[in-house]
Amino acid sequence: MADRPDWDPFRALSLQVLRAGSPLVLTEDVRALLLRTAKEVAIRDAQAALATESGAMELLRESARRITDGSNRLTDALHVMWRLQREGDFDSARQQMRDVLAVEVVPYYRDLAQGQLDDMTDDP
């Protein structure tokens, strides 16, 4: 299983720029953070996106969206999966993780979903 990405610096930048309305200042550190995060959320051509201010903003938005959507999707599916396991419906519980894997692009979330699927037993 992949190590948990450290998205705290990215989240802080995202909150500052996307919610508080601060300008996105493309320092070397910010560029490196955006490139690293883009790689962690499976965004291609991130380097090209940093060539323009609008591209950098879109990269920030899309990275933030993938982190948030993937987290929400996985968390929701886990809660349903655990309920179904408690009810003894292991086929439906497995399907929750398969559904996540069918649409999830972030490698970390995919690894977590696959791990849940691999570890699931039919024992109550």
Rank of each mutant, 00 (worst) to 15 (best):
Ala102Pro: 00
Met81Ser: 14
Ala38Pro: 13
Arg66Pro: 08
Leu34Met: 05
Asp8Val: 08
Leu101Ala: 03
Ala51Pro: 01
Gly88Ser: 10
Leu78Pro: 00
Glu40Asn: 11
Pro5Met: 11
Leu59Phe: 07
Arg4Gly: 04
Met81Tyr: 00
Asp119Ile: 00
Lys39Arg: 15
Arg86Pro: 01
Arg44Asn: 08
Leu112Gln: 12
Ser92Cys: 00
Ala113Glu: 04
Arg61Ser: 11
Val17Trp: 06
Ala46Gln: 07
Leu59Arg: 03
Ala48Glu: 15
Ser63Gln: 01
Met1Glu: 06
Val105Cys: 05
Asp89Ser: 12
Ala49Phe: 01
Leu35Lys: 09
Leu59Cys: 02
Asp99Phe: 01
Phe10Val: 03
Gln95Leu: 13
Ala56Met: 06
Leu78Arg: 15
Tyr109Gly: 03
His79Phe: 12
Asp89Met: 07
Val80Cys: 02
Leu35Ser: 05
Ser71Cys: 08
Ala64Tyr: 13
Val100Gln: 06
Glu104Thr: 07
Leu35Val: 05
Ala102Phe: 01
Ala93Gln: 04
Asp76Gly: 10
His79Thr: 05
Tyr109Asn: 03
Gly55Arg: 03
Ala32Val: 05
Arg110Val: 15
Ala48His: 10
Leu74Phe: 14
Asp99Glu: 13
Leu34Ala: 00
Leu101Tyr: 11
Leu59Lys: 08
Thr121Met: 02
Pro23Ser: 09
Gln114Cys: 05
Tyr108Leu: 09
Pro124Tyr: 03
Ala42Tyr: 08
Thr37Phe: 03
Asp123Cys: 02
Asp122Val: 14
Leu117Met: 12
Ile43Tyr: 00
Gln47Thr: 13
Leu59Gly: 04
Lys39Gln: 15
Ala56Gly: 10
Val100Trp: 08
Gln85Val: 06
Gln47Ile: 05
Glu40Arg: 09
Val103Ser: 12
Ala56Gln: 02
Met1Pro: 09
Glu53Ser: 15
Ala42Phe: 09
Leu18Lys: 05
Ala20Lys: 10
Leu60Ile: 08
Pro5Tyr: 07
Ala38Arg: 09
Met57Glu: 13
Phe10Gly: 03
Ala32Ile: 05
Gly21Ile: 10
Tyr108Arg: 07
Val106Phe: 08
Asp122Gly: 15
Asp91Tyr: 01
Leu33Ser: 05
Leu24Arg: 00
Asp3Asn: 08
Asp8Ala: 15
Leu50Trp: 00
Asp29Cys: 00
Val25Leu: 15
Arg61Asn: 11
Ala64Val: 01
Glu58Asp: 13
Ile43Phe: 04
Thr27Ala: 07
Ala12Asp: 09
Trp82Gln: 14
Pro9Ile: 13
Ala49Pro: 09
Met57Tyr: 12
Ala93Met: 07
Leu13Ser: 02
Gly115Val: 11
Leu59Met: 02
Glu53Asn: 14
Thr27Arg: 08
Glu28Arg: 14
Tyr108Glu: 04
Pro124Ile: 11
Arg94Leu: 12
Arg4Trp: 03
Val41Tyr: 04
Asp91Leu: 13
Val103Arg: 08
Gln47Asp: 13
Val103Cys: 00
Asp122Lys: 06
Leu78Gln: 13
Gln95Phe: 09
Thr37Ala: 11
Val100Tyr: 06
Asp6Gln: 09
Arg65Asn: 11
Asn72Cys: 04
Leu18Cys: 07
Leu24Gln: 06
Leu35Ala: 07
Val17Gly: 07
Thr52Val: 11
Ala113His: 06
Ser63Val: 02
Val17His: 03
Phe90Ser: 11
Leu112Thr: 01
Ala42Trp: 09
Arg4Tyr: 00
Glu28Cys: 01
Arg4His: 02
Trp82Glu: 15
